[in-house]
Design a protein around this nucleic acid. Structure first.
Lengths: 283, 283
DNA sequence: TTTGCACAATGGACAGACCATTGATGCATT
DNA sequence: AATGCATCAATGGTCTGTCCATTGTGCAAA
């Protein structure tokens, strides 16, 4: 390899920065018992993330602010660039920062991405932590809240948008792809959620709706013939502030969908056995 | 530098693996309009993440499964270990995999961490995407749903646990640290959420409660004198299935808390101007 | 049988390089 | 003057190679 000379040179420097991991030392709180608390070692990138998050919570790092470039940050913190990058990766995944290439690029604090809530709930659904039954039930219930607020806070423009949305559903051929119909439905629920004027509910509804609709597409449920009638009625109830009617209409629909999905889940027993990454580690 | 020779040697290898970035080519869906879709370049670690997530969604990668070791994965995918590490970092942050050191270690598919929902919502709150007003309102509403379900599905053991929880609050000196009282409250709400028998609602309640309680600690709200009386009454309502009473009791409390928090927020105008990371990039 | 140590596997971290993208600057052409 | 092109520097993205720390396994010594 003929590289040993330089290697030795860099080693002497690296040695200084080794011993990087921080161990939470076991507190000697009581003399009688040795205690022996488990030693928790923290990875450097986690430390970096925490520093950034602390600045965020303290308000000294706000959306739009720019973090120093990776190289500079690495120097300041006394860690390698790889570690900084892993930290930035972590924050990026969390939707906290966005990375931009090129000159004047860097890591910028974002406003937060509501889609991440969806992502995390979706992961949990796919990993079996959430059942389809629980998911659809929760959606039904939360939409009741949404109807409550929407009826109180709806604006004329939103009513118009809802009506246009239903119109679009009408013009769609019932033989069309499920994904198209579902896209319209997704917007329908988004409009309603926005009418609640509560961003938290919006995010929750967005997440639940998206996951459920995804299931609708995959389960090849047939088009509900009366869907358009139901939707029109619902919009009318909302527009005229008939809370109880709107709630009932919404609940009826969602419960019907729920039953269909549960039935589809039971009959879905085909196991695709694709396997790309895990073909035996061979050890 | 005296390293050029080896550098050249390694370069010839690296050259093969260069040109790594994949550009999603603009689809020519319609001949009349040029379209000019923005060119999205995808980073390699994202590609890796997607592959893993695909396997998950397809069911061929399930909780408990182990991914190949970093080095092997890097070889198989034809990328560097650093890229693999960033991908694993990303999946780890998303709660999809857990990393274990040592022999027989590796990346294991997890069951999903409900705490991530909390984390993402919390981030959004700190980044100003969610207002305290919206947050507390949503919490009030969702807890109404929880009371509904809890009254229907509560089990005697849970009632006992709730009573014990209130007892613990009683034994606590009112002069104690806020964080201790808050920890007990957190468990109180956790017990109620578990009584709903709906994991989705549990996660939502967990998230909203934790963030709100965090605010309670920081805002130094005084201890509600009647809190214990309210709690006892609430538990009794739940135990005896008095849905409406329970809902009212819960809503009353949460709305009171809401008003207090909003007032505290208005009077909180002291700006700590700590700044560690961002002291001018000096360019 | 038990203890302890060497060893290998594997994640964690680092240094040092090169490439690709992007914005700014200045020069040349029109 | 306006446009276009070349160049440069800053910065994220990636790669290679190396070493350290942790952990399980198996063998050897007690």
């Amino acid at each position: 390899m003929s590289r040993k000379t330089t290697t030795v040179a860099t080693r002497s420097i690296a040695k200084k920065n080794s011993r990087r991991r921080v161990a939470a030392e076991p507190v000697a709180k009581d003399r009688s018992q040795p205690q022996f608390a488990p030693i928790r070692t923290k990875r450097v990138f986690e430390e970096i993330c925490e520093q950034v998050r602390r600045e965020m919570a303290a308000g000294s790092l706000r959306p739009g602010d720019k973090l120093p470039p990776e190289r500079e940050l690495a120097t300041k913190l006394g860690v390698s660039r790889a570690a900084v990058r892993e930290a930035l990766r972590s924050l990026e995944i969390a939707g906290v920062v966005g990375l931009q290439k090129g000159a004047r690029g860097g890591a910028f604090i974002l406003k937060g991405d509501p889609d991440l809530v969806t992502q995390s709930i979706r992961d949990m659904f796919h990993l079996g932590r959430i059942s389809l039954d629980n998911l659809t039930e929760a959606r039904t219930l939360v939409m009741q809240l949404a109807m409550q607020l929407a009826c109180e806070r709806i604006r004329p423009t939103t009513v118009a948008a809802l009506e246009r949305n239903v119109d679009r559903l009408t013009t769609l051929p019932t033989t069309g792809k499920a994904s198209e119909r579902v896209a319209i439905s997704a917007e329908f629920y988004r409009l309603i959620s926005q009418a609640t004027d509560n961003t938290v509910l919006q995010m929750i509804i967005e997440a639940l709706t998206e996951i459920v609709l995804q299931q609708v597409v995959q389960s090849n449920i047939e088009f509900f013939p009366n869907l358009i009638v139901h939707r029109r009625r619902l919009v009318e109830y909302i527009a005229s502030g008939k809370v109880d009617d709107a709630k009932r209409e919404m609940t009826d629909h969602l419960q019907r969908l729920r039953r269909h999905l549960m039935r589809a889940e039971r009959t879905a027993t085909e196991n695709k056995t694709v396997r790309i990454l895990t073909e035996e580690t061979s050890h």
